[in-house]
Design a protein around this nucleic acid. Sequence first.
DNA 1: GCGTCATATTGACCTACATCAAAGACTTAT
DNA 2: ATAAGTCTTTGATGTAGGTCAATATGACGC
Lengths: 246, 246
Amino acid sequence: MRSGSHFAQTASSNPLVNSPCEKCNVAEMSLCHALSCDDLRKLSSISTGVEVGKGVTIINEMDSADFLFNVTGGSIKLYKLLPDGRRQMTGFLFPGDFLGIAMNDCYAYSAEALEDCKLCRFPRARLEELLKEIPDLENRLLNMVSNELVLAQDQMLLLGRKTAIEKVSSFLLSLSKRTKSKTGAGNVISLPMGRSDIGDYLGLTTETVSRTLTNLKKKGIVSIPTNGRLEINDIEELTDLAEGMD
Amino acid sequence: MRSGSHFAQTASSNPLVNSPCEKCNVAEMSLCHALSCDDLRKLSSISTGVEVGKGVTIINEMDSADFLFNVTGGSIKLYKLLPDGRRQMTGFLFPGDFLGIAMNDCYAYSAEALEDCKLCRFPRARLEELLKEIPDLENRLLNMVSNELVLAQDQMLLLGRKTAIEKVSSFLLSLSKRTKSKTGAGNVISLPMGRSDIGDYLGLTTETVSRTLTNLKKKGIVSIPTNGRLEINDIEELTDLAEGMD
DNA sequence: GCGTCATATTGACCTACATCAAAGACTTAT
DNA sequence: ATAAGTCTTTGATGTAGGTCAATATGACGC
């Protein structure tokens, strides 16, 4: 196995672990946030714990959208493709994030595990029944989707109007902000995705991402002790760069 | 008044017309879709009809998000700005569309009327109360926001990975599809926005939009009888161009 | 109809980033 | 440890689309 993973190869066929919602490690920041014990039990009854190995495709754009997922461990890349193979990342997911938004019953993007991942899987039909029963759950989902929409609009501004250095700086800052909101510290961030993934997220090439990062390194704004990890040394400067204030 | 409009100058201060939801011309395609008469009455009770003239700013990015709107007439542009004035359109709204998604209680973008507009305005706090009372309404809103999110992701692919001609072709096709879904015919589309608005929507300059359109005209794929109106002559060719299949 | 102003088009030139190519640095397997 | 493969970095060159500048077209008021 290329990735060396010991996890299952497909998300839908091998639910290896059944982790009840009651024990969920990301409950306070995900779909399950602020549900009553009773509601949590209902949700738990339709969920299945799933583990997938690094590199595994979890969902495929245009496949029938039979499941929704909550990420409980690892990280995931989301992307769309053009017929000739050009690729646009639409997002990276981390524990607490939600996966599986669809249109016309088909997934709107593909998703692939960047690392070994743990997911909580819900059959769409049964989750939708539950939404009718539990208004709090529907409200929670609405809030999550609304937030995602706002972030998507930020990304449009980035893709349409920012320069390479502004794009890379913005990207690092958004990862930092996420990390901070979870662990308290946002100086050291994890980069589980490759340079070409970052490029496809920012509308740049691998080479430009690399050049821009070495640029930031030379200025002392960031350090990259190892690929996969990055330290922000001057967050004010990075913030200015992200918005073109320099 | 520069625009020659006879409508009110601000969205929040001059509710000129009180149009009850029962008579709404866009009910079947908007928030109010598939609500019971009783629920519709509740919704109607918290809504105010508002008219704004061309060029009027309806909401401002970072303002306190006190209202949500449903567009019932006219068209609107949504945009975000960078500190130095660079602008990214995040969307164009037409009758049936929803306006006012917020994050941290602030609007995520600004909105300006492209033509004289009619809106249905809801105080956020009261609408949120109503969402708790009427699960169907919340479900409807969730579906609308989810659809918007999918479209936002398509736009990311466009902004990050498409060429100028692919961008312009995609834009014309999306307007065509919208028009078709409403009127049945999608060959002739209305372009209430200027070239620079289109540029800011597609991540291009005015000049590039103009050049690309004359290019499409020269090839006979579109005709532009008058600015503000465009006819698609060869929709297959335009579709191929939009996806880089040529 | 005529003048004013805003917007659109066209042309010449330029630059940020892409592309192409080669050399390093890691990773994993044996 | 070493070899093979993958990913990253760096350099040289090309180009799509931006910028700057000059007309042209159209909309509106008088």
